[in-house]
Design a protein around this nucleic acid. Structure first.
Length: 476
RNA sequence: GCUCUCAUCGUCUAGUGGCCAAGGACGACAGGUUCUCAACCUGUAAAUCGCGGGUUCGAAUCCCGCUGAGAGCACCA
């Protein structure tokens, strides 16, 4: 066996039929990526765009961009190319037809010209008799007349001829040995009447031609795997290893869907969830670090990941823990890193150019407080604009506001320790809790009851601006 | 309905026959610290390991049944 044949090659095959990459796809992508990298193999991205009706404009670009943003770079893809391209199924139509013809010649497939209405009818009949819906092979029996009719130009499909009375075994790396009976399988359509292949044909042909030897995919594919195995066998191709990994769930335990949760990765990136944290969190879905660690780098994940450690149970996706983890990542970053991330974030997602020197000063105040980059806005808006409304009614505190104003005005050395001390003294001399006076000052300056430490904030704002804000509340 | 899969705290999980009267993390709650909110520290509650049988000296771990949950059953992927 040559080195090349032994190389581990994995892939993800997203279809551009949603807005963006699905978080569940990232979870699967991570495992594919890790398994390939762990073995110094190749991680491939193939776009499965064979359903022309469902293709969403711009989705492919977004998916590829998102993959890049979260740091799962492909060795071969529509963007970077590779030796087994094209990596977009819509550009491989001749290939699928070629292989479909081989199946016809080998008597593993046949033409079918049944109208959708007829198929609907027999399906309904079978269902009403509580039988699984299956094609009745009407065209297989009349294959000669069918081929004649096709030559006149009427639309047709090509169906897989599922062998009868066979047992098909899947040796799944996650689930072990699973048996299916071929008689339970439908004669799956391989080539649709629009000339495009269905998933089942395309995936087998492409995985084989692209030398994919580990098929790591969601458990939703488990029940169609026997069809794929039949195809591999029909072509006399060697099987890849299969690993069907658990699906992410909604809190109600159904398959994670946009109805119950935001599922597009871009949603989380727009929130300013740290991409590394997203990967780290997702890696913990159905798997755990051998030493019990929760926070670790992608590099470390790759080194300790093992397909055999994947759990069989489908986990519930928990955005709360994801946010916690994002916060953990932020706290581990240097102030400089946070600064540039915030700058980039507001530029890319909110189209705002924030002033760098000011951002820099605020970082120490918010570093321990934010979990995602968008939180920065909630905490620090007041640095950039004066409050428009106040969360506390200060109209009956004019006398106190005056005292605060004059106390602050008298400070010549504008430092947070001095401001704090003066305010504490003021509280004492007025029989107030220090907390009360700071709260009033906080609302005065930020408009909010929750903010970064207020003395430090005053220093950043500067004495002049701070006093102006108090004046704005009707103090003279 | 049929086929397949799965089953440990609310959630993510550790656990592969004795170290488990089940450990960690998120979340919740309480306390400490504190100018608010966080962060940090301490602590509390939280799983009779879905249920019932077996195997065994011994079972969360093995076997069987039941129940529950999920996925698939398209000219969608």
């Amino acid at each position: 066996m040559t080195q090349n044949q032994k190389e581990v090659r994995t892939r993800i095959a997203p279809s551009p039929t949603g807005y963006d990459l699905h978080v569940g796809s990232v979870a699967v992508a991570l495992m594919n990526y890790a398994w390939a990298k762990k073995h110094s193999g190749k991680f491939i991205v193939r776009i499965e765009d064979t359903d022309r009706k469902r293709v969403v404009k711009g989705a492919e670009t977004r998916i590829l961009k998102t993959l890049k943003l979260i740091g799962l770079s492909a060795d071969e893809s529509p963007l970077v190319g590779g030796p087994f391209g094209p990596y977009r199924q819509s550009e491989r139509l001749e290939i699928y037809h070629h292989y479909a013809q081989i199946l016809i010649k080998k008597n593993f497939a046949y033409y079918c010209i049944c109208a959708p209405e007829r198929l609907d009818k027999i399906r309904k009949e079978q269902l009403s008799k509580k039988k699984p819906p299956r094609y009745d092979r009407h065209c297989l029996i009349n294959q000669e007349t069918v081929t004649k009719k096709i030559k006149t130009g009427i639309p047709y499909v090509i169906r897989l001829k599922v062998p009868s009375n066979q047992e098909i075994f899947i040796n799944d790396l996650v689930r072990g040995r699973i048996v299916f009976k071929s008689d339970d399988l439908d004669d799956q359509i391989l080539i649709k009447s629009d000339g495009f292949p269905t998933y089942h044909l395309a995936v087998v042909v492409d995985d084989h031609l692209m030398k994919i030897n580990y098929v790591i995919r969601g458990e939703e594919w488990l029940s169609s795997t026997p069809k794929h195995i039949i195809l591999y066998q029909a072509f006399s191709w060697s099987l890849p290893f299969f690993a069907h990994v658990p699906l992410l769930r909604n809190p109600d335990r159904s398959k994670l869907s946009k109805r119950n949760n935001p599922v597009w990765v871009s949603f989380y990136l727009q929130q300013g969830i740290i991409p590394e944290a997203l990967l780290n969190y997702l890696s913990l879905m159905g798997w755990s670090h051998p030493s019990g660690k929760e926070i670790f780098s992608l590099e470390e994940y790759v080194s300790v990941f093992d397909l055999r450690d994947i759990q069989k149970t489908a986990p519930v996706f928990d955005p709360v823990k994801l946010e916690w983890m994002s916060g953990e990542y932020i706290r581990k970053l240097s102030s400089n890193q946070i600064k540039s991330m915030i700058l980039d974030f507001f530029k890319n997602y909110q189209n705002k150019n924030l002033p760098e020197p000011l951002i820099e000063k605020t970082i120490p105040l918010i570093k321990e407080r934010i979990k995602k980059l968008s939180d920065y806005g909630d905490y620090c808006q007041f640095f950039f604009s004066r409050p428009k409304e106040y969360e506390l009614d200060l109209s009956d505190k004019k006398e106190l506001l005056k005292k605060i104003f004059h106390e602050l005005k008298s400070i010549s050395d504008w430092k947070s320790e001095i401001i704090s001390r003066k305010m504490t003294e003021l509280a004492k001399s007025n029989q107030l809790n220090t907390g009360e006076i700071f709260m009033i000052l906080r609302v005065l300056i930020t408009g909010k009851k929750v903010s970064p430490p207020i003395s430090e904030s005053l220093v950043i704002l500067g004495k002049e601006e701070s006093l102006k804000r108090i004046e704005a509340c009707g103090i003279s």
